[in-house]
Every structure is written in structure tokens, then in C-alpha cells.
Computed example of a mutant assay.
Amino acid sequence: MQSERPSRPIVLTMGDPAGVGPEIIAKALMQRPEWCQRVLVAGDVPSLKRAQALLGAEPEWVEVSDLNAWVHVPVGAPVVVQTCTLHEPVSWGCISASAGRAAADCIAWGATEVLAGRARALVTAPIHKEALHAAGVPYPGHTEMLQALSAAYAGVPLEQMPVRMMLSAPGLRTVLVSIHVALREAIAAVTFDQVLETLRITADYFARHGLPQARIAVAGLNPHAGEGGLFGREELEVIAPAIAAGRDRGWNVSGPYAPDTVFMRARQGAFDAVVAMYHDQGLIPVKLMGLEHGVNTTLGLPLIRTSPDHGTAFDLAGTGQASAASLLAALDEAWQTAARSPGPGEL
């Protein structure tokens, strides 16, 4: 247990208050009390107290008005800033505009604090895309919202801040060339520019966070990585040239490797990360390794952002049965990444 609070906390956003976010936050802080010293929760105080009471604990949240009061809170107490407005508690497991707006306001506040250097990283509890849409939020999810907020903060057009998703489980990290698109569109997205951009974002991320020569493996698109053109020519005409261009830039990239074995080799320690060509190619092996410990990290942002690798779980909300394991893994990942690249108020 730490004897004092670090000068800059991790900001942990509440997520959709109708989902499991508030209760997995309460559960995580109960299971690992040391996180009370490291985390400032951006959320709705009544929603968090309701979740803590659901778990059979007395609500002991300390509410502060802003991040400046963080270091003055007694050690051991969970700390929250009221960063959204809910006029009444939302119903667990129900989509609502008020819940979507509350979740978006918490994300915007947390991102601003991290971008300004007042907090060291952002960890986000799950949100619901339909609730965001109902609230009139012009972004489908966390990634797009954080990309827009970061680009605006940096004063650059959105297209100048491309991002990628990295999913990780113990022993395996996978970065995706494309995410939530139809499989036909995902195949079409395997272009020289898209693959090279993914390699750049991946190499830059690891270089900024203490691993300048990260071993990045690249999966092929086709079975057996095309078998010399017998099963498709994307490896020969697109992926291999992008890898060669990446090596010319000094990145430690190799491949393309057969998709059915490269993830196993990474798990055995041969690589630090695997670049996958599309969503299911990369996420099936990660989730097979253990969804309960999965972490989603957004690469390409000027801030550290992780989240649990699961959704709002409306079917479990309000039951107290949701696991905090993935959230704790996301907190660990954010803290360790920040430790490798400390900024103001370093560890």
C-alpha cells in the first residue's frame, strides 16, 4: 500500500451508468485497495454509491471538485469528481439518452485532464453505442470520440491523427489494420498505405513507451500467407512491400507469416506484437487467451488510453455478478505504460 498519493492519477471514467461500469469500478477498488491511491473516478456520485451498496459495502466515496484536490484526500479513500449530470438514477440494463450523455461527458472531462498533463492516463469503463446515439453524441464509440478530442486539442485535422486498436491478453498483443467493417470491406482495406500506417502507429507506440525495437510480426491475409501467390497475391503485392518499407524506416517488422501459426509464436515469446489484417483474425486468438483479462488500448493518440475488453453487459447490470478482472488488467496496463514514459510529476 502506498503511503501517499502520486501527484497525477489515472482518470477512470464511469462508463454507461445503466451498465456494469459503476459496479466493476466499485468491485475493482474493493478487490485491489491500492488503486484507491492511484485512480480518480470521473462519474456520477449517486450511481457509484448505488453500485458500492449493491456489493454490500458502505458508500465511502470522497467527492472533490477538481483534480487539484486529489492529493489532499486521505490515503485509502476512493475519490470521484462529479463530471456529468443525472437528474435521477437510470434503470440498470436500459438504453437511455441521459445515460449516453453522462458517459460522453465523463469521457470528455477525463480526456481533457490527460491531454493537459494533469493526469497520467485514461481508463474507460464500457459505454453503449445506442445510448450515445440517443443522446445526440456524434461519435459511435470511445475510439472515435477520443480521436476527435485529441485532434481538436492538438489543433490538427482528424485525418492527421489516425488511430488503431490493440487488444491484449497475457502473452499476446494484436494490432488491427481494420476493425468494425464487413469482411468484404476489411479485405479491401488491406492496402499498402493502410498496412504501412498500421506498422508506423504500432512502432511509434512501443518506441514512446520504452520499447524502441519492438518485434512486430505481420500476419498474412490468406491461408498460409498466400503460399507464394497460390492462394492470393495480397502478401506479394501489398503486405510484403509495406513490411519492406517499414524496415527501411528502421522498424523491427517481419512477415508476412501464416495467420494460423503467428499468434502461437507470439505467445511463445517470438514477437512483442502481431499486426492482424482484420478484426476476427486478430481478436479470436486474443479472446481465446482469456477474455476476462483482455485489454483494449488505443494507439495513435497523444495520451495513454486503455479499457476492459467487454461491453456494458446490460444483462448483468445491477446483479453484482460482473467481473472486475478485465478492468483491473486495463488499470495495470495503463499504469505500467505510464511508468515507462513518465511526464510531469513522474513516478
Rank of each mutant, 00 (worst) to 15 (best):
residue 340 R to P: 06
residue 257 Y to C: 02
residue 270 A to R: 07
residue 230 L to E: 14
residue 286 V to A: 08
residue 8 R to K: 14
residue 294 G to N: 03
residue 159 E to H: 13
residue 115 L to N: 12
residue 114 V to W: 06
residue 23 E to G: 08
residue 187 I to C: 12
residue 54 L to W: 02
residue 43 G to H: 11
residue 184 R to G: 03
residue 16 D to W: 12
residue 23 E to A: 09
residue 202 T to S: 12
residue 298 T to H: 05
residue 242 A to T: 10
residue 52 Q to E: 14
residue 299 L to A: 01
residue 128 H to V: 08
residue 95 I to L: 14
residue 142 H to I: 00
residue 97 A to V: 03
residue 136 G to N: 04
residue 266 A to I: 08
residue 319 T to W: 06
residue 180 H to P: 05
residue 32 R to T: 14
residue 347 L to I: 14
residue 19 G to E: 03
residue 204 D to R: 13
residue 202 T to N: 06
residue 310 H to M: 03
residue 311 G to I: 01
residue 209 H to D: 00
residue 187 I to V: 15
residue 256 P to I: 03
residue 176 L to R: 09
residue 24 I to Y: 11
residue 221 L to F: 09
residue 241 P to W: 00
residue 305 R to Y: 10
residue 225 A to H: 04
residue 32 R to M: 12
residue 222 N to L: 04
residue 248 D to H: 14
residue 32 R to D: 13
residue 52 Q to I: 06
residue 273 A to D: 03
residue 23 E to I: 09
residue 309 D to G: 06
residue 308 P to C: 07
residue 123 V to G: 11
residue 51 A to N: 02
residue 191 T to P: 10
residue 214 A to Y: 11
residue 81 V to W: 05
residue 274 V to E: 05
residue 214 A to M: 07
residue 157 P to F: 11
residue 135 A to M: 06
residue 152 A to R: 14
residue 221 L to A: 07
residue 49 K to P: 00
residue 259 P to H: 01
residue 233 R to H: 14
residue 343 G to F: 06
residue 35 W to F: 12
residue 324 A to H: 05
residue 256 P to Q: 01
residue 1 M to Q: 11
residue 222 N to Q: 02
residue 206 F to Y: 15
residue 52 Q to H: 06
residue 284 I to M: 15
residue 239 I to L: 04
